[in-house]
Design a protein around this nucleic acid. Sequence first.
DNA 1: TCTGATGCGTC
DNA 2: GTCGGAC
DNA 3: GTCCGACGACGCATCAGA
Length: 558
Amino acid sequence: MTTFHELAIVCERIESISSSLAITQEVATFLRALEESELAVCPLLLMGTVFAEWRGLELGVGKSLLYAALSSASGWSARQLDELLREMGDVGRMAEEALRRRAQRTLLSAFGDDGGLSVLEVYDILERIARAEGRGSQGQKVQHLEYLFSSCSPLEARYLARLVMGEMRIGVGEGIVRDAIAQAFGVSSEEVERAYMFTGDLGEVAVLAMRKGSEGLREVRIRLFRPIRVMLAQIAPGISAALEEMGEAAVEWKYDGARVQVHIQGSEIRIFSRRLEEVTHPLRDVAEALLGCIDAREAVLDGEAVAYDPSGRPRAFQYVLRRFRRKYGIEKKRKEIPIHLFLFDCLHVDGKPLIDESLRERRRTLEQIVRESGVVSVAKQVITSDEEEASAVYHEALDAGHEGIILKKLSSPYIPGRRGKHWLKVKPLMETLDLVVVGADWGEGKRAHFLSSYYLACIEDDTGRLLEVGKVATGTTEEQLAEITEMLKPLIISQEGTYVRLEPVKVFEVAYEEIQRSPNYPSGYALRFPRFVRVREDKSPAEADTLSRIEELYARFQ
DNA sequence: TCTGATGCGTC
DNA sequence: GTCGGAC
DNA sequence: GTCCGACGACGCATCAGA
């Protein structure tokens, strides 16, 4: 039996190592020593995930329930915990410190291993937390958590807190675990990876590797109604660079919607999202349409679901979200916001796996089995090596209201879960905005003790008032992060938990992908994918961009 | 019965 | 989704 | 090239508490 304490010890050791090879080695050694039932869950725990995606279980615990549980277990108030979080810069360290400083009370785990939690007990209780629902469920979740924290040593609490928040921060992700499983059980990383594509569960793969080795891993096949991880695209600096990379390419429109994977067998159909959640019911109109237009007994298809207005113009991404995870009012919304499905790949048809076939071959099959309808079509594609021609497709896509293009290598197989150079996306660069910094958040983890997230405002034309348009937190180097923190510190007006209000004197140049309507920000607009470009030392707040400029930019791309 | 906060998925 | 940093 | 972690906005479901 493995105790949670042992897991915590390993995590602490790993956290102190920077070499990924050495980390892999540690993980492999740990995995090898586990019993089978533990092996099914520990690979995920090390990554800070509790449940495999396909299980569809969620903890439903975030910072606020964590505070509630820690309050009971440690005697600290939620407010004190928030201050402690800022001080420690990490939820794990916060929990650890809160327990360390708690009023003395019974602490079983301090007196030997007999009272300590086992890994499986912790997992079991986390599952109960996930399954709690209905009236009083938050109270139950908190009670379970409180029990765990009360039975924990401070070190265990560090990793327990991070685990429930879904962030272990020890440098172990899918890649490391994949290699560690390979190393632990004498199989190749490629074999582990392949089995992982089809099962979506590294715990299951680890058990399989232990019991049956390479042979077992190679037997894993794509299964109908068990979604597989989707292939992703990499950003290319431009069309010419992308074409240079691949020569002749399949150039496809990049639709701004949500990724879906369709599994059909006879009259049965299921639609899955990118994270392998089932979304058949909210998209039942799409499902019905698909049942009528696929000429195959069984098929697994890949595509993008896009929102349209009734006149046939694609709508902003926000509208897809209104359909996507909906449980109520589906009928009403399907009329308001029709969804169109563009299929661009096919991974399995009539018992035949296709992922190892070339894109050219898969596309041919796709075109054969799809009869286009008002709801379903095959994604637009032009095969070319000519920059002008590709550029024409690009502008066509943008004019039609889409995101850009994807260039795909015709000879490439479908590689689930990978973001490789076989698929390259090209999107336009937007003009930047100069915005006033009016607040900031203290960071966590490697950003602890830095002001790392900045609240931005534009200027209301008539009044000169500052109106928030969102936050930016990426695009800075570590060096800039330190400089900016020093620059902003003297401007702090007030502080509450990790939030800091600032005198509005600094201006940041910010890049973004798109301007959205926002129901949340006072300006009525927000930036999609904002990133920091530079500090505008040369600009005073009065010279920052105005609301009317933002309105113009928004209107230009509608 | 309604509203606001929270959690979690999409990008 | 974006980005920077480590390897 | 690949992996990892630290972060962005939005919309829906859920639950607690008024």
